[in-house]
Design a protein around this nucleic acid. Structure first.
Length: 264
DNA sequence: ATGGTCGACAATCGA
């Protein structure tokens, strides 16, 4: 089973890239973030073109939005929280029937948090911290099993998840308050599946800013996109693919697709 | 210390 996550930064603008991605990597399930499309305008016809006929989506005008395309039928989990009471379309939870049994899949788009790492002067940063705290409480109250959590979590927790630990300690995405909260969230019952394949001392990035024209040369990346699995699925992990080639496609997203393969 | 580039949508806002 191949599960892919990608911050596509506008689903409608990058439908052709999505088709190319699915053709190249043959995922069974694709989780997207920043679809930026209201549900009424969701390009449902893409599902057939991708041969991923089962969809779940939760979008809004201009901002945020998540969607899942799947080869297998999806059942949307009822009663999930409206995170921070904002109705801002940052999460989908579904269940699919893997050969070994049902698996729960979470697709998250965590707030980016703005520029200033001070919750007292930057409401976006306060929102980001509150969002992660609320997610942590949710999984403490609802301990996960046979679960996979993917998405753009907008936090690079480890020293080698950023190009310069020292230079980014004060930059939103790598500040200690964010990292501490993310670790608490992870430890509600998940394992970092990407670091299962890549040791902590190796650099690992999934995002390169649009503001660096020649992203290869500077290589100032960050690991903002994540795949977590519950311990019961760790023995089933088989492979990790960071599809960096997509960062050089025409009109690329600033995030690259991340795919995990499991024997489930 | 600063500005650098995108996407959505129609002047900025968010990333």
């Amino acid at each position: 089973m191949r599960i892919l996550t990608w911050n596509i930064n506008s689903l409608r603008l990058r439908l052709a890239s999505l088709e190319r991605l699915v053709a190249e990597l043959a995922p069974d399930i694709v989780c997207l973030q920043e679809t930026k499309v209201p549900d009424a305008l969701f390009p449902a016809q893409a599902a057939a073109a991708l041969s991923l006929p089962h969809v779940a989506y939760c979008g809004m005008k201009s901002y945020n939005g998540v969607a899942i395309f799947s080869r297998l039928p999806l059942r949307t989990c009822p009663g999930m929280p409206d995170w921070c009471g904002r109705d801002d379309r940052r999460h989908l939870a579904v269940v699919f029937a893997a050969p070994s049994g049902p698996v729960t899949l979470h697709d998250f788009y965590v707030p980016a948090g703005g520029d200033i790492p001070d919750p007292d002067v930057n409401a976006k940063y306060a929102h980001k911290l509150a969002f992660v705290e609320e997610a942590t409480r949710h999984f403490v109250d609802n301990p996960p099993s046979r679960s996979i959590l993917v998405g753009d979590l907008n936090i690079a927790p480890l020293e080698h998840d950023v190009w310069s630990h020292k230079q980014l300690l004060g930059v939103v995405s790598h500040t200690p308050p964010e990292v501490e909260r993310m670790q608490a969230w992870l430890h509600t019952g998940f394992t970092d599946a990407m670091r299962h394949f890549v040791p902590d001392h190796e650099k690992l990035y999934t995002w390169w800013s649009y503001r660096n024209r020649d992203w290869h040369v500077a290589n100032r990346g960050r690991r903002l996109d994540h795949v977590w699995v519950t311990p019961d699925l760790v023995p089933r992990l088989r492979r990790l693919t960071i599809h960096k080639a997509a960062r050089d496609w025409p009109a690329p997203s600033d995030h690259v697709p991340v795919m995990i393969e499991l024997d489930i």
